[in-house]
Simulated scan of single mutants.
Amino acid sequence: MKQIATLLACSLPLTGIAADMRFTGKATPPDSDNVIYEERHVVEGECTGGLFRPTSQTVTYVRGDANTFAKKTLTYDQSPLRPSVDFQQPGFNEVMDIRNRNDSELDIKWQTPEGNTETSTVAITEKLVVDAGFDNFVRRYWSEVTSGETVAFDFLAPTRSKAYGFVLEPTDDDRINAAHTVRIEPSGTILSFLVDPILLGYNENGALTDYLGLTNIRKDKDSNYRAHIRYTVETTPDCELTR
Rank of each mutant, 00 (worst) to 15 (best):
R183M: 11
D210K: 06
N34E: 15
I108W: 03
R53L: 09
E39G: 00
S147T: 12
A70Q: 01
K162S: 13
C47G: 05
V130P: 03
T232V: 12
S187W: 01
V182M: 07
V138W: 01
L12K: 14
P113I: 00
G188R: 04
G188S: 10
L212Y: 07
N93T: 11
D86N: 15
R175Q: 13
Y37I: 00
D210C: 05
Q57V: 03
E126W: 02
V138M: 07
Q89N: 05
R139F: 00
E185H: 15
E185M: 10
F137H: 05
K127P: 05
R230G: 11
A5V: 14
N116E: 14
R230C: 06
N216T: 11
P54I: 00
V122F: 01
F193M: 12
L12R: 14
A207S: 11
D77I: 04
M96F: 06
L156F: 04
T181Y: 02
S192A: 10
L168W: 03
A123K: 15
R140Q: 13
K221N: 14
L208W: 04
R101S: 13
V182P: 07
D172T: 15
A70M: 00
R63P: 01
T48E: 12
P170R: 02
I190A: 10
L8S: 10
L199M: 06
P54G: 01
D65G: 07
R101P: 09
H41E: 06
P90Y: 00
M96N: 09
D31E: 14
F69A: 04
R183C: 08
S187A: 11
Q78V: 01
Q89T: 10
A157F: 12
R226V: 12
D154S: 13
K26G: 09
P54T: 02
G148Y: 04
L156T: 07
W110Q: 09
A66Q: 13
G16M: 07
L214R: 14
F134N: 10
E114P: 05
T125Y: 05
D172I: 09
R99A: 15
V62R: 09
R82Q: 05
S147R: 08
G91D: 14
P197W: 01
G16C: 06
D172E: 15
E149V: 02
R53F: 13
N116R: 12
P197G: 02
R40D: 12
E169A: 13
F166C: 02
N93D: 14
L8G: 09
L81I: 07
V122M: 00
V122K: 05
I36C: 03
A66K: 12
D196Q: 11
S120G: 15
G16Q: 08
D103E: 04
L199I: 04
A70R: 01
G115Y: 01
T125C: 02
A70F: 00
V182T: 07
V35Q: 08
D196H: 08
Y202N: 07
